[in-house]
Each structure stands twice: as C-alpha cells, then as structure tokens.
Design a protein around this nucleic acid. Structure first.
Length: 816
RNA sequence: GCCCAGGUGGCGGAAUUGGUAGACGCGCUGGAUUCAAAAUCCAGUUCUAGCAAUAGAGUGCGGGUUCGAUUCCCGCCCUGGGCACCA
C-alpha cells in the first residue's frame, strides 16, 4: 500500500499535564459519584465493582497494587460505558500488626503512621485516575467504622455464634500474639516469621463451623474453579463413623472416628492424642502413668508443625489398657502418641496398619500385628511388610468374615449399617474447618465490646453505647508478660458494668482484622451513616458485589470469613442476600527478580517515578500489556517505552487531517477492532486488547482515518487509557465525557471477510498459499491450489490419494 | 508425597471445537533525517543453508493417534501455586 497520508510527529503527548487537568475536571464535575438511590435516579442497571482494599503499609502503593487496581478500574469503566451505574469504592484496611510493630520500634503512634500512610496512598490513588468515589471511602481504624465492626460482633454474639474457650493456641513470641491456625501455616508466624509455640489462653471464637455446609455451597457463585476447590478442601467435609470400643477391665469406653470402617477387621491397636479427654479420664488407670506424663509433657511443648518436622518416625507410650474390637474380640493395645491431634475427629484413632500408612509406620515401630483385609488391583494377598503395599484405596475385602469378597465401598456401607445396628457405631459428618479465633492480644485493632462485671459476669456493651473507643494513652514497650497492651491502660480497663453500674473490667483483647474486612463491602454504600452500619434497602439494591477482584492468597481466609459474616447477617435479617460476592477474579502476582515484593527483601518497586515520567495511562497500560491479568509476572521496565510511543502515535492520529486511502478497508478493520476489544475486555485479556489497538493505529498511519472512526477509536481506548481518551474526545469536539458516550457496537456484516488466505498442505507440509472466496467450492479451491507451481511440483512426484478442503482453513493433498 | 496451573524466538507474550506457529511490543541489524546525537520514520529480524526461489529443523523431553498436533492420548522432566502425617 502506498502511504498517502504523511503523519508527522507533532510533538509528544503531554501526559502529566493533561492527566492533572482531567483529574481536576472529573473531580469538579462529580463525574464518578454514583447516586446510590437508584429509584430516584430513574433506576439504571447497577454494577458494584470492587477491588480488595489495601493495607496502608509504610511501603505505600507498589507496582503490584497498580497491576491490580488499574485493570479493575478499566473493567469498571468498560461497564460504565455499557450503560451501567457503576459503584467503585476504595478504602483502607488500616488496623493490623505492622503499624503496631512499627510503633514498638519507633515510638510513632499507629494512629499517626496510619493516617500518614493513608494520606499518601490517597494521593497516589488519585494520580491513577480511577473512578473511585472518595465520598464513599472507609478506613477501618476510625471509630466511625470500627464502631460498627463491634456492632457486627454483638450481632454474632446475640445469635450465639460468639463464644469463649480455653484452648491451646498458636503463640507468636515475636508478635506477642495469638495466631489462628490459618495464619501459622508452616510453623512460623505469617507476618514476622517467628517460630510458633503453644500456649493456653481464653479466646473468643466465632462458630464458622455452623456454616460449613452453607460455605460448601458455591452454586450461586461465578468464581474460579480453583478457588472453589481450595475452599472445599479447607472446609474438608468427610463422612465416616464414630466407633465405640469397650476398654478392658474398666467401665470406660473409647470412641474413634474413621472414614474406613470397612477395614476394621484389620484393626490391631488404638492411639489417643496426648491432649485427649480419654487420657485425662483414665490417667490413674495407666500401667505407668509417670511415663505417660513424661511423654505428654514432651508432646505439649511441640507445635503441630514440630510433630510433623520429626518426619515419619512415630513415637508413642503404651497405656497398659486395651480396647476390645467387637468384630474380632481382639485386644487392641491403647497408646498415647503425638501424631494424633486432639482437635481432629474424636482425638482417638483406631490403628489399621495394613491400610493406613501412618498406622503402618506406628505398628512397625512398636512391633504390632499387621493384617491384610483388602486385596488391591495387583491381586497381591501376601502379608503386608513394606510401606508400598499399604496404598490401597480400592479393592476387595478378605479376612473380614461377612464382608469377604465385597468391594470396599460396598463393604463400608455394610459395616456401618452393622455397627449402628449393634449399637456401637454412629455415622457422623466431620469438617476440618475450625472455628474462627478472633481474639488478638494487640493494641491496634477494634476492642471487643464486652465487660466482665464482678456481679453480672460477662456483659455485652449495649449497642447504643458503641463505640468502645481505643484509648490513646498506651505504652508500646513490650512488657513481655503476655498480657494484652490494653490491659496496661487503666483508663480503658477499669469501667462500670452497663447492667448494674458496679465495678467491671473491659475485655482487653482486640479483634482480628479479618473481621474488619469481612463486612466493609456493606459499609461502602453507606459510609456516612452515623445511626447504623448500613441501610438494608440500599445494600439490598446494590449488593451482592458484581465483580470482586483480589489476590488468590485470600481464597481460604478472607473469602470464607466474609461469606460467613454475610450469611450470618442474612440469617438475622440484616441483609437480604446470602452471598456477598457474585463474581470473583484473582489477579496474578507481580514479582521482582522472581521473588514476592516485600520490604524485608528490599525489592519493592514504587510506581511513582514511572507515573511521573510517563503518566498514569502509559503505566497502567504497560502493566496490562505484560501478559494476562490472572498470570502476573516479573517486573521490569524494559518495554514501557513501547507503550509511550504508542500513546504518541495515537495522539498524532487523533490530531491528523482526515484523509482516507481505502474507506472500505478502514470500515472493516474498525468493526473488527470493536469486536475484538469488546471480547478481550470481557475476558479480561487486556494485553491482547492493547495489541489490537496498536495494530489498528499502525494500519491507520498508512491508510488514514476519518472523523467518525477517530471517535470510535477513542471510545475503545477509553477504559484502558482514560485521560488520553478524555483529551482526545475534547480535541474531536465531543461533549464531555467520553465515558458516558456509550460503548460502540460493531456491524456484524462488516467484519466478515469475503476472501481468505488459506494454506496448501501436501502430506501435512505447507507448500503454498492461495487467496480464495470465503465460501469457495471444493472444486475451485483444489484447482486454484493445483495451479500453484510449487504445489504442482510436489503433486507430480506421486499419486494423489486424497484431497482435503476445509473452507476458510486449509487445502490438503495426500500423495503416495 | 498429593492436587491444580503452566513450559512457545534473545525477552514479555499471541494463536488451541486439530488446519499457514511466532500477532503486538521490547531488544537487535540496516537505512532515512541530523554537523552530530537524542527523538522520529522506513525496512528486516525463530534457527540452519542459500543472492534468491526454496529446502530442512522447530512450541520442555520420549512415544502414539491423524493427511495434518502448540492443541488429543500415554510416559517422563522442569517451574509456579495450593495442601501437607486430618484418621
């Protein structure tokens, strides 16, 4: 093609200046404020576009935030252009350990450092030019917010979903705080990496287990399959049976939980957890109680993780007691061993060494009998002496009296029926999910709204007396006495009972920040309300959240807690919807040199210098262009100039004379572009959407463009580069604002190519190419292919045994 | 160990109801412009051979199905993520 249109570089696009200009205009015109009262607003289609709110850390925003927030905002803009009434709020999850640890180190009060960080991050976020409605923001550490977090606690309390219990908990010596099991996953503190210890403390818990079944139901949710699977694993439902065995020579009995009762004819021993009630109850009856005590003491010093760290070698102490297996009348020795955990199942396990690898290892260690009761696919019936022989989760029963010859699944049902009939078995459902520990021995969190009165005992603060204010007079020096910081604030701790006005002490623990983040999506639309946390009519109109975007690391914690809290509020009638997040998308992680960015590694990349140099549009587009949104990637700034060049070219095209070489081709390419961008954004494939825009600009640089096409081109780039689009829109003399100009539709006829280029294959090898009508007949295609010299050459070499023609795809010849 | 993703040029990545692999961008090479440089523009760029036409190889490795495989099947290797002695 001859380049008839000469595009002369007309000076660079002044990104910074133009972006600041529009940010001011957008703000002044309240462009992104959403009228939440939809009935009054003529009732548009609502769209709640939410991104997980950031923690205001001292690092401020890093490129990972931009990677996350930029496309999320582009998604919201795309929805707005489609005519939705888009609500896109932003806030701060501002309670939490880092601010407190910083206070301990530096003496700077968390309120001060947090406020400073929030202010700076608001500035950074504003420079991004997202559609955030700052009138509807939340900051969880402000009393106007945490007042209602306390309200949420009280609702759960009233509903019977909050309770206290003394239990062994993970204690982090570094943070001087309790961690939920979920937060201490590899034996070290998730936040400070200290080795986790065990300690007994009285804690507040939420009964999330009561909602295990509801949480297991993902049927209403448009979520990644992976996330649903992770939650399912985390909840860990299993169906099995509690079997009760008599203990020889006592009146006591012992209950074990098993999912494999089919193997019970092979049971040869019983193991109980050191912390189990059975041990407590029968301690005096043990043959060598002193030895058992020594073993228990040793085990209790270990964390669950340390029990694992010892590898596969099993230890245990014989109690001297025997349980009787009713099926075989066998005496099964009872051991105490730390590979059994008290809080799982009944805290007692029946040992079937032939068909459970851990039981096998224990049996080998203790010289116990191993019986084979299942024959696997290999037909091996020899005695089990090697660990590899144990792996049998399918097969046929043997040595099991009336079960012999049955498939194990059939046998499982049969034996359960039998045991229930005989009265020593009871079918039960078990969940791995543990109740949610919400007490934190920390200062920087929402106080738990409970007092302990000498007369009345535990008394909840009446709702009209909220908030329980977090006191400012606090000494951040670690006392090392294990007490919560608030314990040392006399002004806080000493109080009067709301019920009898007598002397009382406040609960000095604060609440897990996951509680703050479990309901914030309800607060956003109602952030200014002072008399209630949210208005039911408003949240019922705007929720559930239509699109929720955040990291996959929250799959099992935040996303379960939020669902639980919402479900509980739903059951109490506070909200009319059960699930808070209808659609969920996880962005990928941005790493630096392959490692997760963190202050401790010193590899945090700030967006500021890039925004300063190239502007927000270029920076966000570059992050989108890196690859698929869900993949993430390793950060480097090598290619950013390519995006900057593209923006200049785009700007040049918009400002160029309107002269077109090939109008029909322009029309076709433009319609194809509309189709492509729409489909790509719909799939969140922003990288290929940007590529398509580049391709179109490259084409237009050669072919020229008319005014109407410029207009559409600007609309198409608008979600991706909002400032650029707004400026171009003005240049084109269009009415403010481009975002309310609608999303272009393509002409279905125009995108169809009448001719296509297809390859010619001979025995699967490409030997040429023809351009032919889209719906050309087989005859025409074959003869056109044969006419090619290079094709004819090969066809002469043998006999054509087959001719293949797939319209629009390929012509093929098979020759011999 | 188990489960889930993924492995494509020098680099980020595109393309999968099986049909011309490498769109777009970075980088690199050459050219235009310039006193010179930057910026910009034009051309080229998977590898090997060739002036070229073209030929051979090629989507982690080894097999298989097919006229035809990045795509489907079997067996490995590697990377990332999740779970981790849960009875």
């Amino acid at each position: 093609m001859v380049a008839v249109v000469n595009f002369i570089a007309m000076g660079n696009y002044q990104a910074r200046k133009i972006e600041q200009k529009w940010q001011k205009v957008w703000k002044a015109s309240n462009l992104y404020k959403v009228d939440l009262d939809m009935a009054e607003n003529g009732g548009g289609k609502k769209y709640y576009n939410l991104v997980m709110f950031p923690y205001p850390s001292g690092d401020k925003l890093h490129v990972g935030h931009w990677y996350n927030f930029g496309p999320a905002d582009s998604w919201g803009r795309y929805k707005r252009m489609q005519g939705y009434n888009v609500f896109e709020p932003m806030g701060f999850d501002s309670f939490g350990l880092p601010a407190e640890n910083y206070a301990i180190k530096s003496g700077v009060h968390p309120r001060e450092s947090t406020t400073k960080n929030v202010e700076y991050m608001v500035k950074q976020l504003s420079e991004m030019g997202a559609m955030y409605d700052w009138d509807k923001t939340v900051t969880t550490s402000e009393s106007s917010y945490y007042k209602w977090t306390q309200w949420v606690f009280l609702q759960l309390y009233k509903r019977g979903l909050a309770y206290k219990k003394k239990s062994p908990v993970n204690w982090c010596p570094g943070c001087q705080t309790v961690l939920a099991n979920e937060q201490a996953q590899d034996g070290t503190c998730e936040r400070c990496n200290s080795e986790v210890e065990h300690r007994d403390l009285t804690q507040w818990f939420f009964k999330i287990r009561d909602y295990a079944e509801d949480l297991l139901d993902h049927s209403e949710l448009d979520w990644p399959e992976k996330t649903k699977a992770m939650q399912k694993h985390w909840i860990g439902k299993s169906t099995g049976i509690d079997i009760t065995y008599k203990v020889e020579g006592t009146d006591d009995s012992i209950s074990v939980y098993t999912t494999r009762p089919d193997t019970n004819f092979g049971a040869t021993f019983v193991v109980v957890a050191p912390e189990s009630e059975f041990v407590e109850r029968n301690f005096d009856k043990f043959e060598d109680s002193a030895a058992v005590q020594v073993y228990i003491d040793k085990a209790r010093k270990k964390t669950d993780i340390e029990r694992i760290a010892e590898g596969r070698k099993k230890t245990g102490q014989f109690t001297g007691l025997y349980a009787i297996n009713q099926l075989t009348d066998k005496k099964m020795p009872i051991y105490v061993s730390d590979f059994v955990l008290a809080h799982v199942g009944t805290g007692c396990v029946v040992g079937v060494p032939g068909h459970d690898i851990r039981d096998f290892e224990f049996a080998i260690e203790k010289g116990l009998e191993v019986i084979r009761v299942v024959v696997g696919k290999d037909g091996d019936e020899t005695p089990i002496v090697r660990p590899e022989q144990v792996q049998e989760h399918e097969g046929t029963m043997i040595n099991s009296q009336f079960l012999d010859g049955m498939d194990i699944h059939e046998a499982t049902v049969k034996i359960m029926d039998y045991m229930e009939e005989k009265g020593y078995g009871k079918r039960v459902t078990n969940y791995k999910l543990r109740d949610w520990s919400i007490s934190r021995q920390r200062y920087w969190g929402a106080p738990i709204p409970i007092v302990y009165c000498e007369k009345c005992g535990e008394v909840p603060i009446p709702e009209d007396q909220l908030p329980v204010e977090l006191p400012m007079d606090i000494d951040f020096e670690l006392k090392g006495d294990g007490k919560s910081p608030l314990y040392h604030s006399e002004s806080f701790r000493k109080t009067k009972c709301p019920s009898c006005s007598g002397d009382a002490e406040r609960e000095v623990d604060t609440m897990d920040t996951f509680l703050c983040s479990s309901w914030y999506y309800l607060r956003y639309p109602c952030s200014k309300m002072t008399d209630k946390p949210f208005d039911k009519a408003v949240v019922d109109e705007w929720l559930p959240v239509d699109m929720y975007i955040g990291g996959p690391e929250h799959a099992c914690m935040h996303l379960l807690y939020a669902r639980f809290v919402n479900m509980a509020l739903h059951d109490m009638g506070h909200v009319g919807f059960k699930e808070p997040f209808k659609r969920l998308v996880h962005q990928g992680m941005v790493t630096k040199d392959g490692a997760k960015m963190s202050k401790s590694k010193g590899n945090v990349v700030s967006p500021d210098e890039f925004v300063e140099k190239y502007g927000s549009d270029v920076f966000r587009m570059y992050l989108m262009f890196m690859g698929p949104f869900v993949d993430g990637g390793d950060w480097n700034d090598k290619g950013i100039t390519g995006i900057a060049r593209f923006v200049d070219r785009f700007w040049t095209v918009v400002n160029s004379d309107e002269k077109v070489e090939d109008e029909a081709l322009l029309n076709k390419n433009l319609n194809k572009l509309i189709k492509k961008i729409s489909e790509d954004i719909e799939k969140m494939h922003f990288n290929v959407a940007v590529a398509a825009l580049m391709e179109f600009v490259n084409f237009v640089m050669k072919n020229g463009i008319d005014k109407e096409s410029k207009k559409i081109m600007v609309q198409l780039i608008s979600p991706i580069a909002p400032h650029l689009a707004e400026e171009c829109w003005e240049v084109l003399g269009k009415k403010f604002s481009v975002i309310d100009s609608g999303w272009p539709e393509y002409d279905k006829e125009a995108v169809i190519d009448s001719t296509v280029k297809i390859g010619i294959q001979i025995n699967g090898k490409v030997r040429g190419e023809i351009e032919i009508g889209k719906d050309a007949s087989q005859e025409d295609a074959i003869s056109a292919a044969k006419a090619l010299a290079n094709v004819a050459k090969y066809l002469k070499e043998g006999e054509v045994v087959k001719e293949i023609y797939v319209p629009g795809r390929i012509v093929g010849f098979v020759i011999k």
